[in-house]
Design a protein around this nucleic acid. Structure first.
Lengths: 142, 142
DNA sequence: GTCATAAAATATGCATACATATCAAATGAC
DNA sequence: GTCATTTGATATGTATGCATATTTTATGAC
């Protein structure tokens, strides 16, 4: 079997390509967030007041990894972490005004760049690719 | 746009899933190599005598990253690094007998697990997914 | 209420992943 | 042959990504 016949290799290349597009398009627009950091803001926007464990679940990250991501967002002043009133172990997350502003400005750019990731595909093919991906991921987290 | 409608997110999830399948199947078979390390052995098998820069090109890695990968393979006794006779900057890579043996034993396992990555898809869908991936990657490196 | 268990963070360690800088060596222009 | 440029490798710094261990706190069984 050839390297490019292997799903594992192709998928890694796709991820690499996707990350590259995200980075270059965002930097071109003057934003300095990684895709992971943006995903965290997005999840926080749609689920205000969640803790880190919930955030990790939503965007499918390891809890250990989320810690660092949130810490960097906090350091950039985009997110606040407060001890939960109902569970002193948990840290409730909230976007700061700066975070909300940055999210609002980045969102159209990020949405636009999604098409660029699959630029080589027709609209039909793009939809096929996305639904096959969702299907391949199965009930996993979808 | 919903998170699961975003190619970027789905692709990351696919990569996550793919890595997980690789790891669990290989560990179940008693192997302790990462997918990256296996890819390096595979490239070395098909392209004996290449240097690190060539290896990085073939499997599409950063040159800086390859250094660490090869170092770990060397530490495991699977690969040798010799100064090139024609270019004293370059380190010519060669699989050791142990490396060749491990590669031969892992190869069928890795080939078999490729189908597991896209387990939820029919054979037709799998082929479609792979060709759309190749097309999406364009002339990039294919 | 006590205690075993589970859950939320954090810490640690390893392995990618990439940008940038640096060093050494090769190569091409002249 | 000399020198600017390029190239191979390494070093450094940042950011994932995950496994495992630890600490603190909550919860359920009794």
């Amino acid at each position: 079997m050839e390297l490019f016949g292997m799903p594992g290799h192709l998928i890694r290349r796709m991820q690499q390509h996707s990350a590259q597009v995200f980075k270059s398009k965002c930097q071109a627009a003057g934003f300095d967030l990684t895709s992971v950091q943006f995903a965290a803001l997005d999840a926080l926007f749609h689920n205000p007041g969640i803790d880190q464990a919930r955030l990790a679940e939503i965007i499918a990250y390891d809890r250990a990894t989320i810690g660092g991501v949130v810490e960097r967002l906090e350091r950039k002043g985009l997110v606040r972490r407060d001890v939960s009133k109902t569970d002193r172990r948990a840290r409730v997350l909230a976007m700061t005004p700066e975070g909300a502003d940055l999210y609002a400005r980045m969102r159209p750019v990020v949405e636009a760049l999604q098409a660029d990731i699959l630029e080589q595909l027709s609209e039909d093919e793009r939809q096929t690719f996305l639904s096959l991906s969702r299907k391949a991921l199965g009930g996993a987290n979808l």
